[in-house]
Computed example of a mutant assay.
Amino acid sequence: MNSERYEAEKTLDEVRLITGRTRVFAILADPIYHVKTPQTMNAVFDDQGLDCVLVPFHVAPAGLAALVGGLRRMQNFGGFIATVPHKTSMLDLCDEVSIAARHIGAVNCVRRENDGRLVGTMLDGIGFVEAMRSRGVDVAGMRVFLVGAGGASSAIAFGLADAGVRHITVSNRSAVRAVELAARLTAAYPSLSVSTDASDIGDHDLIVNGSTLGMLPSDADPIDFTCIHAKHLVADAIMEPSMTPLLRAARSKGCVVFPGKPMLDSQILLMARHMGALPVNQA
């Protein structure tokens, strides 16, 4: 056997093969190009020696219900992660959702039971808080300025409230949705100070962009960048680009910044457990 053939066969042996026994998982998004979950989750599967694979599914909102209906019938399908813009829609497409998901009004991780039932939960908020903690930041007692009132923003808001922040200002292009999120926060956390008056950004400790603004070059700025000062902590839930216009502007002013990817890293094992790829008690 010559050396080139040996190296080729050795490489094939080292590649995890997808077979008819492989358990399939997915991430659902529109657009799909920016997602980082397949790389991160498949690295976990490799590390754990699991015969599983997670693949990206590009599905527009109009086709979401039909796709989910088909996934129910795939007997080698274990579950999926839902991201922009499908998190809120998934709430009504699941057969059962966690209390947290019901409060937040969105689902980002779904397990398919053997009988085809879909069980959803929401892990974005936990992931965000844990990502902050991994950088040595305890959000308890902070005043937070949150951009967005959709699925990711709502999850982050509830995660922050659960972690003990003192105040949350919700800023959203649709004032009605901002008021709705503020009302849900107040109902769940009566002692939390909540506002939808976004006129004063400066009087906050932490600025969080939970919206999609900044994903595309043509997007409007999520906030007025001139209001950022060096004492602000600034975080963005967007994965791609990793350094959004908001984070670049904040860094130029001397702020400590928090990109979106660590939020995914902090919840990836939780997702694998919820979908049944890993035992609930496995580290």
Rank of each mutant, 00 (worst) to 15 (best):
V68W: 06
D219M: 04
V144K: 10
V97R: 05
R135D: 07
P217K: 15
S193E: 15
D236V: 09
R117F: 00
R16E: 09
V139Y: 08
V44S: 00
V139P: 13
Y6H: 15
G136L: 04
L264C: 03
P259T: 13
G276C: 07
G116D: 06
E96N: 12
R184Q: 10
A65F: 02
M215T: 02
S191E: 15
H204N: 15
C94V: 05
A149H: 06
M263E: 06
T212F: 03
D95A: 08
G63R: 13
A65V: 08
R117P: 00
G20R: 13
I99D: 15
A235N: 08
V147L: 10
L270G: 05
R173H: 09
I18P: 00
G49S: 09
D30V: 03
A155R: 13
G148I: 13
Q75D: 11
R173E: 00
R102W: 01
R184C: 06
F258R: 08
I18N: 03
A62V: 04
H232T: 07
D205P: 01
L269D: 01
S171P: 00
I156N: 07
G276S: 05
L160C: 09
L67H: 02
G141V: 10
Q267P: 00
D115R: 06
V257R: 12
R248P: 00
V15Q: 10
E130N: 14
L278G: 02
Q48L: 08
G125N: 05
A62P: 00
P241S: 12
Q39N: 07
N2K: 15
D13F: 10
Y33W: 10
L270F: 09
L185S: 14
L216V: 01
L206V: 08
L123I: 04
S171D: 05
F80W: 05
V55H: 01
D47H: 14
V107Y: 07
N108G: 02
R184I: 06
T226C: 02
A283L: 11
T244E: 05
A157L: 12
L181A: 11
P245H: 12
H167I: 04
A182H: 11
E240N: 14
L264E: 02
C109G: 01
K10Q: 14
G20S: 12
E240C: 05
H58P: 00
V44A: 03
V107R: 12
K36N: 03
V280M: 13
D203K: 14
A187I: 09
A26G: 01
L67R: 10
L185D: 09
T22Y: 09
D51Q: 12
P217W: 13
L247M: 10
V257M: 07
G202N: 09
V256I: 13
G136F: 07
D115L: 06
H167E: 13
L54P: 00
